[in-house]
Amino acid sequence: MKRRVVIIGGGVAGMQTALRLHAAGIGSVILEKDSATGGKLRDWHKLFPTFTPASEVLDPLRRAVGAAGIEVRTGAEVVGLDGRGAVLADGTRIDGDAVVVATGFTLFDARIKEEYGYGIYDNVLTSADVERMLNEGTLSMKNGDRPRRIAFLHCVGSRDEKVCQRHCSRVCCVTGVKQAMELKERFPEADVFNFYMDIRMFGSGYEEMYREAQVRHNVHFVRGRISEAAPTIDGRIQIKAEDTLTGRPLRMSVDMLILLVGMRANDDNRRLADSASLTLAPSGFVQPADPFLHSVESGAEGIFCVGTVTAPKNVGETLAEAAAAADAVADYLKNR
């Protein structure tokens, strides 16, 4: 009998899971709430630490999904689920033999950290804006000028009690290093300063990349968190921080302030979790059955989870986890 798995979310996690299931002879349907698959990666420029264009990951996945004839329903927002399918916003029920939750994360809204003036001052950007502008080839100051001094601020919406985001989003540190290098290449005459609380280079090649940014690109790393951004009379942005390694307050004006926004749990995780008795971690991400032997099982019968719906992850980890999820789903279907 032909088995069908309902996969919620058509980002890299959902697509890779569908492809691995297909390889194991199991059919699936991908429910994507946007108008196209690809998730956040669609707006991303290059991936750390290799500077691989995001399209070089995304395009092969999309092509393979097409070639495998995997059913994709776009504009399909899921409002409820159980181990035998999902319910869409329009009330339609999509039935299956198992469900994979691959709904990803939400980018932290930098406007909430009002002191940084995002949405208020020109030339305060987020890391996501930078990726989009690099893709469009439009990265410059609002007036079209080339920036002479750029500051990055790490941990915007991460490790911050004040905005109810206590967790570390992990990938922003290395994104800050990557973008510092990209900007330095684009604007070699600019001084680049990264303001950080801790630098967490957890992945293979990341520490080397950090060192390269320091030594080869002369990126200045200042251990201290920017306290506020304010406009200067010549349209620049004044920032203040403590240079904690010298124990002195520090201030400077910059042409561009880039906020490295964190990954936070989707608002509708609560609704989905309630509909299917899933457990949420205090951070709001879905909590897997256990972090070791059942990291892709939700703990609820027939429901699996993969990718950043359970925690901040990079693309490589997500793709690898998708293979693990497909494997767990296949096991589950075989034993039923």
Binding site: E115, E228, A230, P231, T232, I233, Q238
Partner: peptide
């Protein structure tokens, strides 16, 4: 009818 000045040390 006035205009507010936003200057670096406003806060």
């Amino acid at each position: 009818g006035g205009e507010c000045v936003d200057y670096p040390e406003r806060r």
